[in-house]
Design a protein around this nucleic acid. Structure first.
Lengths: 197, 197, 197, 197
DNA sequence: TATGAATGAGAATTCATTCAT
DNA sequence: CATGAATGAATTCTCATTCAT
């Protein structure tokens, strides 16, 4: 029991260290030895827990995206209707970014590269996350709240993209120009009510 | 005069080759020798035109983004009002992606990394491109067409992000699910009219 | 007493496992952890019985060559004269190979390397084995059966080499072209009677 | 022309250096950087001429065995009959060893390992060399000089093995106990006339 | 004794960049 | 200007060995 705990601890410690290092320098510029140092383990120890450098990145996505996903599902469930859910999605997403800059940066920047160098890695968790948006839309359409002609496959990307670009700006900036809540409310309002006067 | 032309030719040939190679493999996985081969020049020749590998990428952004920028400005200028301009922006942006997959992929994926490994490179052209959106908004606000409370710094990112995520989907997919015009119209309509019934 | 027996058991088990693994992959390509796994012990346990990886190989030679040596001495002792002894040597040597492919391969291939990487290891057992041949020769020369001008130091190597190359062929081939007895008889006959008609 | 010469020179220089280093330390214990240093080139230069470390060894075999083969064929061709050819083979083989200790050691020791780590490398040149012996035998058998019952596949290995074990002794010893000619004559005489008085 | 997680020195290989031609 | 052979620093990953439990 104690040993199992220790192993899991070390696994987590490495993952956390890798998240930090990758976020700071990017995947390619990060050295395994840096991750090891950051995690306080020997270089070789990394390879007891991960097949190779690529798989560290993959594991980060898998683990973190699952948490993000679970959290979002939980948060949305307490909202009464589609409109509130969409607002909540924006709030929660941007809030999450603020609290996990390292992870956010990874998902922002490195995730996008992943399809290049990790040919066979399908980011299912991320697709599931996107689908949460589509489901909100569909629910609203069935209730007659949202226009029927909105195409879910387009909408989910547009809505996510809007939030994502916003958070990318925060992640890459050192200073924060806008308040999280303001930004979240603005963005969900663009989509809900449009920008026309 | 002829030599100058030849030099410019070779510079362009290398840039074009690099765009293709970077888009296919990503910046880090691309080798200078591959670019040289694709361009039909010797490895060493690359260094007569570019300081180093990083600067090839930077030059691509500079050159291509200028074209993109000029094109967008020209296209927007023929539109009568802010609403039409915003629709046009979406149309032109997505159309551009379709016609320049390599470049689109570069801007999508590698641009995001650039701030990591090229510390002092400020992507001014890209920021200028974003500002085109902000200017359309401001114009509309001044005319009373768009709501006053929309914050340009947030809006420009949300609008661009929505288009960008959509095109990322296309760039990375092999198959194209949605028609360009449909997507452009949907997205601009989300922002202009909202999605509520 | 029981513990001593157990210790010896484990020692033997490791040695047997190492013989198998070394034979299959060669000394350098074999991993200590593979030997441990094959022997059913923990990696660290190996080091309770052997100083290091090199000494496992050395121990195999020592132990196995002693058995080979004892067996050969016993088998030769029942032969009446030098001619019969030489024939017997060939028979026994090749038969041994057939029954102990793993060990044979080790002696064939790895023994030859040993002098390289294990600077101070003198393979005394092997030299003793070679000398059995020289002794048969000398016995025959004293009895006037073998030519006086045959130099034992050359003969023992030539005879052993002939058998050894033959068995190397078997060890490395998957299929066996020639019958053991045929080969043994042919080879001893070359040396005893020459090949001339 | 000059460049081609230079490239070939460097290729040869690396091969020669590798032969020396491999012979001294064995394939596995030899480091690519040592070979580079011995050859007077940078580590990376090795990889302009050879795919990897394995292929350096393979190339040595290919190149050297071809020379050995050509030389032996030439030497044998000037001999009148099978008996003289067999004597000559022994002479030339042992002489060759004496003049090329490094190469001899490689072929002796490392060749035997090659089937282990270079699974798909078939040592065709070596098999051809062995067949030269079989051909001498067959020629003699057709002329009625050698006994019909001698099996070429066994004989060639026995004869080669006898010479090979002898030369292995020389290669590994620092001092030389026997004269080359004496050894060659003794060995060929064992096979030709037998050792019985 | 036995374990096996952890260590970290070490090695092959890559590739951006240089420079003699 | 153009070349491309040569360089060598840098990095991932392996595995014999140790030692706390």
């Amino acid at each position: 029991m104690k040993e199992v705990k220790n192993q899991r601890d070390k696994y987590d410690k490495i993952l956390q260290a890798a998240t930090k290092v990758f976020a700071k320098k990017g995947f390619f510029a990060s050295k395994v030895s840096e991750i090891a140092k950051e995690a306080g383990v020997a270089d070789g120890t990394i390879y007891l827990y991960f097949e190779n450098k690529d798989h560290i990145l993959i594991s980060i996505f898998e683990e973190k995206m699952q948490l993000v996903l679970d959290n979002m599902v939980k948060e949305l469930s307490s909202e009464p209707g589609p409109i509130e859910k969409l607002k909540k999605f924006a709030q929660v997403h941007l809030k999450l970014i603020e609290g996990n800059k390292d992870m956010a940066e990874l998902i922002q920047v490195e995730l996008r590269q992943s399809s290049k160098f990790m040919k066979n890695y399908k980011n299912e968790k991320f697709l599931r996350y996107l689908d949460l948006i589509a489901e909100i839309l569909k629910e609203g359409q069935e209730m007659g709240i949202f226009k029927r002609e909105i195409i879910p496959g387009i909408f989910k990307r547009a809505f996510f993209g809007a939030l994502d670009e916003m958070s990318r700006f925060w992640v890459l900036s050192t200073k924060k120009y806008y308040d999280i809540n303001t930004a979240a409310d603005q963005i969900s309002s663009y989509f809900l009510k449009g920008i026309c006067a």
